[in-house]
Write a protein that binds this DNA or RNA. Structure first.
Lengths: 211, 211
DNA sequence: CCCGACACTAAACGGGAATCACCCAAACGT
DNA sequence: ACGTTTGGGTGATTCCCGTTTAGTGTCGGG
């Protein structure tokens, strides 16, 4: 009787099709909220409400909250990887490829600040351990695409200092630092973004690579 | 009986003196826990327990959790500022001063990863808005000390590209990026830290500054 | 016709930050 | 000597979070 009271059930049920497309709906809703409100703002309950389903239902399709957001991130990182692969195959100078990749990387970060923060600034606090498995692997492949041309440069003896590996890591870190600061401290008196990116790239490449 | 267990009241009362030194106790306990367990691990209740006081009591001395941790950070950042001021006054080449400051910055970050993360990687999620007032000002003064020598270099016309301001920001960002990645992704296959720092500094300085 | 599997739910749990309504003891004024 | 103030302190409570548990209605075979 209490049951009948609370639930007209029959018609209030979501008319959507059954099965696994619910999973897609959840991801879509979660992505919207996550992009708009960040990690903390993307609550399980909020996502569930947006889908029109109870919060418990999300656990039918995902192990936990982190898995949802990491799956979203996978999509974004996948795009980044595709861009890198594309650039890697262009018949241009290795230095030019490096530059293009790093530019693309920074633009990606600035265009997807929440995703970027989740994947690349995730303190072990928030994302706890090796749940990043899949995303980390995609990140690795991105880095591999990127370090390819660097090792070409190193093999050609054009590296002024350090190994190819350390040069690649330093270049990545420098670009990461720039976008990370721009994202987390947007209110500072930054020089124009384009100039910062230009100075970073030209400065480091000129400093590391001999022509 | 349970009452007697928990509350002998009369003599079990903390024998400490009254007043504002409680504030110091809280900060000390909070710092220990925060350094050991990070932002999420440093809960109000844990801190209160360590001090031997109820969680509510913390709110007598601090507005909220963030204020406690930011006050801790102020202490650490203060040290960093002192180092920078010291270096700024040494009678050596401006480039050498810049290098020393950036080295000190990176060592500070690697020595105080949790503090560094809180202050310089704090997503607006976790630290929400302009509570950073005091810390931000200390950070500004650090940056001011650092950009001093850079502007000297710029004034001497030794900057290869960009303004003094953008050069300073880029140098900072590059070092930030390196330590941020080392801190948040400690399990990657990093080249030796010393080499990464060396390549970053020599690379960028060689690329930005003409001799 | 029953039986399990499925998609889902309400209710609850434990733990976070923060707030509320008190309480007690020492300090003060007269 | 005795109210009164007041400041440090408290336990219970609120609200939200992620997650778990136990259960419910529907469905497609055997």
């Amino acid at each position: 009787m209490t049951v009948a009271l609370k639930k007209p059930h029959k018609s209030a049920r979501k008319p959507k099709g059954d099965g696994h497309l619910r999973r897609g709906e959840i991801l879509a809703a979660a992505e919207k909220i996550f992009i708009a409100e960040g990690y903390a703002g993307a609550t399980i309950r909020k996502i569930a409400d947006a889908v029109g389903v109870s919060s418990t239902a999300l656990y039918m399709h995902f192990r936990d909250k982190d898995q949802i957001l990491l799956e979203i991130s996978d999509g974004a990182i996948g795009q980044l990887l595709a861009v890198n692969v594309d650039i890697a195959h262009r018949p241009i100078d290795a230095v030019a490829r490096v530059k293009l990749m790093l530019e693309a990387y920074m633009r990606f970060a600035l265009d997807n600040p929440n995703t970027y923060q989740l994947v690349f600034c995730g303190s072990r606090d928030v994302i706890s351990k090796e749940k990043q498995a899949a995303t980390a692997e995609l990140g690795d492949r991105c880095f591999a695409e990127f370090s390819g041309p660097i090792h070409e440069i190193a093999a050609a003896g054009r590296l002024r200092t350090g190994s190819g590996e350390s040069a690649a890591q330093v270049l990545w870190a420098a670009c990461h630092g720039l976008v990370a600061l721009l994202i987390t401290m947007p209110d500072r008196n930054w020089a124009p973004r384009e100039e910062l990116m230009k100075v970073t790239l030209e400065g480091l490449l000129h400093g590391l690579v001999t022509d």
